[in-house]
Each structure stands twice: as C-alpha cells, then as structure tokens.
C-alpha cells in the first residue's frame, strides 16, 4: 500500500514538472527573458549586467570568477562556511567514535 502511494507520488511529481516545462522558454534562444538586457519590470537583468561590467570592474577576463569573488562575495563566504561546518560536523561526530572504541 505504501509503495503504491509512493509510486503515485513520483508519477504525479513527474507529471506536474512535465506540464510546467511546456511553458518554459526555448532553451538557448536569444529571445529568452534571461538573455534580454532589461527584465519585464524594467530593471537590468543580472546576467547581462555581469557580462557587460565584469571586465571593467575587476580587470579579470573570467566573468564567473568575478561574480563568485566580487559581486556575490558575501554569498561565497556563506558557502565556504557551510563547507567548513560540514567538515567540523564530521570531525566532531566521528572522532568521538574512535575514543569510545578505545575506552570499551
């Protein structure tokens, strides 16, 4: 019974996503909203701004590096903290295991 519900959930999930994907813009088309200089509300699209200003702002040809290290540097600090926290969690949980083994 449980298995049937799970399979129905997966099929429903796939169906909903397939239905939603019908309305997505064509992949790679230059007419996509993502590839326009201005969004529908009149603000500058982030990707367009990065492409135009990255080299001028940081003299670095690789725009991905500029976005990672400069425009979104606070975000990257957060990601780095997440990685660090993951390592510390592994350290704390598994080091204790070794100690317990030696005690017993």
């Amino acid at each position: 019974m449980n298995k049937v519900i799970n399979l129905l959930l997966i099929i429903g999930f796939t169906g909903v996503l397939l239905y939603a994907s019908m309305d997505l813009p064509y992949r790679g088309s230059p007419d996509n909203p993502m590839n326009q200089p201005e969004s529908m509300t009149g603000t500058t699209v982030a990707g367009h701004y990065y492409v135009e200003k990255a080299y001028k702002d940081a003299h670095t040809p690789n725009m991905v590096t500029v976005v990672l290290g400069d425009y979104r540097s606070m975000d990257t600090l957060g990601e780095q903290t997440v990685i660090f926290a993951a390592g510390i969690i592994g350290f704390l949980i598994l080091r204790r295991r070794k100690k317990n083994k030696e005690d017993s």
């Binding site: 702002d57 940081a58 003299h59 670095t60 590096t65 500029v66 290290g69 400069d70 540097s73 990257t76 780095q80 990685i83 660090f84 993951a86 390592g87 592994g90 350290f91 949980i93 598994l94 080091r95 295991r97 070794k98 083994k101």
Partner: peptide, 30 residues
C-alpha cells in the same frame, strides 16, 4: 579588485582541500 579576488580564491581553495580530506579521514577512522 583583481588582487582581492585572488586572495579570496586562495582561501576557498584551502578550505575545500582541508575539508574534503578531513571528511575522508574521519569516514575511514578505525
């Protein structure tokens, strides 16, 4: 800004290297 990005990247590289090796070391303890 060029040099600031370089410092930041070196910091990220050290963290990723240290944490990935440390995770492996802790997983195979014992």
């Amino acid at each position: 800004r060029y040099w600031g990005i370089l410092f930041v990247e070196v910091g990220i590289g050290l963290t990723v290297m240290g944490i990935l090796v440390s995770l492996y070391d802790n997983l195979v303890i014992g």
